[in-house]
């Protein structure tokens, strides 16, 4: 194996080693919580990216999948005592079903129309949840929200007293979604997606079944997003429709993925971790000064990043990465240029 590949592997090993050992150095639960949230948001942004980034579609209603995943799993747990470890697959399946149902009518919409459709669907689902107290044998809670039945420390039920298991869980989830993204991007489906991202009509003319490609990618995205919702539910242990299905959730995923670099494998990861860390740090230092100051600063930061790097932060890091690997920006191995 050549030197570039060795460097890549070395880098991955080092990053993983650091990530795995963080809880050994960082002891304060609050910091573990913050880092876990950063990882969770990186995961959610990556899940969004699986479909929206790779296929170039703007879904502003992805909150429905976190909501469906969370609610289905928690309802099965609260009312039927099914462990979330198992229930999460039901939640994921429900999300896939929802995504496919929505996909059929919405995928023939282009650009902004598709985005607006997702906004409408997202808001609609949120309002529906807010107005539903019970659904058959399940208690949904409506706008009052759904409390996750507390069991103290119950690993079999995905509840831990310590923050550390959540951290490792989030880390594992992030690694899985990144590996999956990499696989998807380089698979045949991935090529179809980037083709239709570029020009849907041309792709169709080449014989690609655009609708099916979108449906499959959207299903993957929905599944992963739903699992993220389950994790959120188990971490916060309280589901409020506005928070888990609302615009805050949906928009945040998009922000993070795009600012990080949508359509790339690591872009959403970088965006998720960096931006969420920044928002926590700003809240930490500024939130007790003037009302709203911390959000103002956060907004300004996002504005400037978008203005100066619309391709995402990953673009900057890419340069340093290439330099580290010894590859020129044109993708050639510098050491072998004659």
């Amino acid at each position: 194996m050549d030197i570039v590949q060795k460097k890549k592997i070395g880098l991955i090993v080092i990053i993983l080693a650091i990530a795995l050992s963080i809880p050994l150095f960082v002891t304060k639960p609050y910091y573990i919580h913050v880092i876990t949230m950063c990882l969770l948001w990186a995961y959610l942004a990556s899940s969004w990216n699986l479909f929206c980034g790779f296929a170039g579609q703007l879904s502003l209603g992805h909150g429905i999948f976190t909501a469906v995943g969370a609610y289905v799993t928690i309802m099965l747990f609260n009312d039927f005592n099914i462990s979330p470890w198992i229930g999460m697959f039901a939640g994921g399946a429900a999300a896939v079903l929802l995504s496919t149902l929505i996909g059929y009518p919405t995928f023939k919409l282009r650009g902004a129309y598709y985005a607006l459709a997702t906004v409408a669907i997202g808001s609609g689902v949120m309002v529906l949840i807010e107005n539903t107290m019970t659904l058959g044998p399940f208690h949904v809670g409506g706008a009052e929200g759904l409390i996750v039945r507390l069991m103290g420390n119950a690993p079999a039920y995905l509840q831990f007293m310590s923050k550390v298991p959540y951290y490792y869980l989030a880390l594992a989830m992030l690694v899985i979604v990144v590996v999956f993204s990499y696989w998807l991007k380089n698979s045949r489906l991935g090529f179809y997606l980037s083709a239709l991202k570029e020009d849907e009509d041309a792709a169709a003319a080449l014989g690609i079944n655009v609708r099916n490609a979108k449906l499959v990618a959207a299903a993957y995205s929905a599944f992963f997003t739903a699992i993220g919702g389950v994790f959120y539910a188990m971490l916060i242990r309280y589901l409020e429709p506005m928070a888990i299905a609302g615009p805050m959730m949906s928009n945040e995923m998009v922000f993070l993925a795009v600012v990080g670099g949508s359509g790339t494998v690591f872009g959403p990861v970088v965006g998720g971790i960096t931006l969420h860390a920044i928002s926590e740090v700003i809240q930490f230092y500024f939130s007790d000064m003037a009302q709203g100051l911390h959000l103002f600063i956060y907004g300004l930061i996002v504005v400037f990043v978008i203005m100066f790097k619309p391709q995402g932060i990953i673009d900057i890091l890419q340069k340093y990465y290439n330099r580290f690997l010894g590859i020129s920006d044109r993708g050639e191995d510098e050491s072998s240029v004659s």
Binding site: F25, V26, T27, K28, Y31, T274, I278, E280, I313
Partner: peptide, 25 residues
């Protein structure tokens, strides 16, 4: 001109949050 600056700021922010996390105790 600004690319490097923004990149540096972002990397610095990431590291700062890390330091705050580990050393702030």
């Amino acid at each position: 001109r600004y690319t490097k600056l923004v990149g540096l700021i972002l990397v610095a922010t990431m590291m700062m949050s890390f330091v705050v996390g580990c050393g702030g105790g």
